[in-house]
Computed example of a mutant assay.
Amino acid sequence: MDDALSVQCSLTELLAERGMTLTHLSELTGISVVNLSVLKNDRAKAVRFSTLLAICEALSCTVGDVLHVSSPGAR
């Protein structure tokens, strides 16, 4: 499946831009650090809309800022 498109998460970059930790994002959203870490490290197989909305609200961003489609071999 190396030639397939994939969905990548930009939480690392978004948190760095805001000087925010995963722990602080967890406190703001009520989403566990473990679940945020799974998402941040691109290990999530699915994401609830409510999770995305909570992250977007806490980071003042859009879903497109959090998730993007990546070409094969790109990050």
Rank of each mutant, 00 (worst) to 15 (best):
M1N: 02
M1S: 12
D3H: 08
D3P: 00
A4T: 03
L5W: 07
L5N: 10
S6Y: 05
S6N: 05
V7Y: 04
V7N: 06
V7E: 02
Q8L: 14
Q8V: 12
Q8A: 14
Q8R: 15
C9S: 12
S10L: 03
L11A: 09
L11K: 04
T12M: 00
T12P: 00
T12S: 02
E13W: 00
E13F: 00
L14C: 01
L14N: 00
L15E: 06
L15S: 05
A16D: 10
E17L: 07
E17W: 00
R18I: 03
G19L: 13
G19N: 14
L22A: 08
L22E: 09
L25H: 06
L25R: 04
L25M: 06
L25D: 07
S26F: 07
L28C: 10
L28I: 06
L28Q: 15
T29R: 03
T29Q: 02
T29I: 10
I31K: 11
S32Q: 11
S32V: 00
V33Q: 13
V34S: 13
V34W: 03
L36G: 01
L36E: 09
V38H: 07
K40R: 15
K40G: 02
N41F: 07
N41D: 05
N41A: 02
N41G: 02
D42S: 13
D42A: 10
R43L: 12
R43D: 14
R43T: 09
R43I: 07
A44Q: 08
A46Q: 08
A46M: 01
R48V: 01
S50M: 05
S50G: 02
T51L: 00
T51C: 05
T51P: 00
L53Q: 12
A54S: 11
I55M: 12
I55T: 04
I55E: 01
I55A: 01
C56W: 02
E57H: 12
E57I: 06
A58G: 10
L59D: 03
S60H: 14
T62S: 13
G64C: 08
G64Y: 07
V66G: 03
V66H: 07
L67F: 15
L67Y: 09
S70E: 10
S70W: 00
S71R: 15
G73W: 15
G73M: 14
G73A: 09
A74C: 11
